[in-house]
Design a binder for these strands. Structure first.
Lengths: 287, 287
DNA sequence: AAGTGGTCTAGACCACGTA
DNA sequence: ACGTGGTCTAGACCACTTC
């Protein structure tokens, strides 16, 4: 198959290799580039269901002859689809239409003790289990100097030693998010289990509440950006996929007690907040 | 300058053109690709302040000789920096280090009438003006069939005619976000100013509240993804920049009354939510 | 006119996955 | 062994911007 610019044009008389190229997408003024027309054609096939999630795409060499384009041009087209998140690639394996399984997190209820009991345990585990999937967390505890943006939120001096509880979280064994929680030194001294390098079964929020440190409010901040090389490795994503960064600073009535930085892949997560009076939704599906 | 794989290797004895290429980054096993080493070098120069925001980078041809690489390889390196959002490019102009001016939106207060008076006007204008910038909105009103995801949130049938108030928003004349608000037909019939194709000076939330339709709660949903071609055009962003998509469904005590879809560039916006009791912050900077 | 990035070709070698 | 994607080269023409 050959993609013509706007109206069909003849392919004959391709003189030099560059003239021939031009007759399809280069000489003609104001025509959309060939790589984009190829990307559009493939995108249409994917979204219209011609290629379904999990299915392999034709190989680059195959597409090359199918669209009468050079391999670089085909690669540029595929690269576009990867950046759009429609397609994944890995060395040695064909391009694949990506599976879109989306996970929803209700941030306004997350860590809210009214929605859980002491037996329930960790907020994250609960949310994942509730959606019928299997959670896993790899824990790690470190003592680190507070980065400026953390110190600012915790009302401490930059560089002061803080306890960092870091974990890499999995959903059905797929790396899903990283989470780093910073606690001020004074708090950890009074509540030493925060420094234990393993999960706290009833959840840290509950542990602190049971010992008189009640987190009554939190400020959340969200941003989205391309993954750093570190994040790309930890979350096993390519540069075309953006990450959502969630910063939650928890407060008691007097002061901030912790700051949690979570990163997700931006395309496979939905975050919801319920604000005000949503009693209208009570009878409805809470999705 | 030449970037050697791990330790410096001799350049002599480049036989064929491919061998020569190999001696820098191809023959050697387990070395990071040349394009990535070039990208890393440039990224370091940018983040360490060698190239400051707004400054031009050397041209592709210049970098080509500087790093002894082909133009395609240099382009691949620059392409990754564009995808990371560090650099912008446009035809005919040199690559430029991107300016990072960030805008913060407090979503938990947005449209909350407790934080404004009848004279204040539009929520968006307020938020932008409060940060010392100049807002502008291009308005448009259409009657459209309700898309399924909108119908679902508004408790109406897909395809039912709804009123769509669409606007493209600017901050200091830079396209910043698009916003599309859908109102069910029955509501517009009772409150006809919703169908006027211009801004409602006191804000739609206030207009409805003054006529007995009080929005007492809202459910927000967030996601992040690569821009669609339409969004890329409207927001003037490239494919390397992700967009944040905000869906807010407003409810009265009885039912949903509107659904607003907002898209921003993900890298230049911060979204905050204040939850629970944050009286601890009262004396502090509310940034 | 000269310089810059955007598109495209043709062809090479390599690393990885599968069989 | 073979096919797939990943990296790289050398060189061409084009469109846009600036002078």
């Amino acid at each position: 198959m050959i993609l013509y610019p706007h109206t069909a044009t003849s392919q004959e008389g391709g003189a030099t290799m560059y003239q021939q190229a031009g007759s399809v997408g280069q000489d003609d003024h104001m025509t959309t580039p060939l790589y984009r027309r190829v990307a559009d054609a493939l995108r249409t096939e994917i979204t219209s269901g011609g290629y379904t999630p999990g299915m392999d795409l034709p190989s680059e060499r195959e597409l090359q002859s199918r669209y009468d384009a050079s391999r670089n041009t085909i690669r540029q087209a595929l690269q576009t689809l990867v950046a759009e998140g429609l397609v994944v690639s890995s060395q040695g394996r064909p391009y694949q239409v990506r599976k879109q399984e989306i996970f929803t997190l209700n941030a306004s209820r997350f860590e809210d003790l009214r929605y859980s009991t002491a037996e329930d345990g960790d907020s994250y585990d609960n949310d994942v289990l509730a959606s019928g999937r299997i959670p896993r967390q790899d824990f790690q505890v470190q003592l680190v100097p507070a980065p400026p943006e953390i110190a600012d939120r915790l009302w401490i001096e930059p560089g002061e030693t803080v306890t960092l509880r870091y974990c890499l979280r999995f959903v059905d064994d797929v790396p899903w998010s990283t989470q780093a929680t910073y606690y001020p030194r004074a708090l950890v001294e009074r509540h030493p289990r925060l420094a234990e390098p393993r999960d706290i079964s009833e959840g840290t929020t509950r542990y602190l509440a049971d010992h008189g440190v009640e987190q009554v409010g939190q400020r959340d901040e969200w941003m989205s950006r391309p993954p750093t090389p570190d994040e790309a490795r930890a979350l096993q994503i390519g540069p075309g996929v953006s990450v959502l960064v969630w910063t939650r600073t928890g407060h008691t009535r007097d002061r901030p007690v912790r700051c949690t930085l979570t990163t997700f892949r931006g395309d496979l997560n939905r975050i919801t907040y319920d604000l005000g009076d949503l009693s209208a939704l009570d009878g409805k599906d809470q999705s």
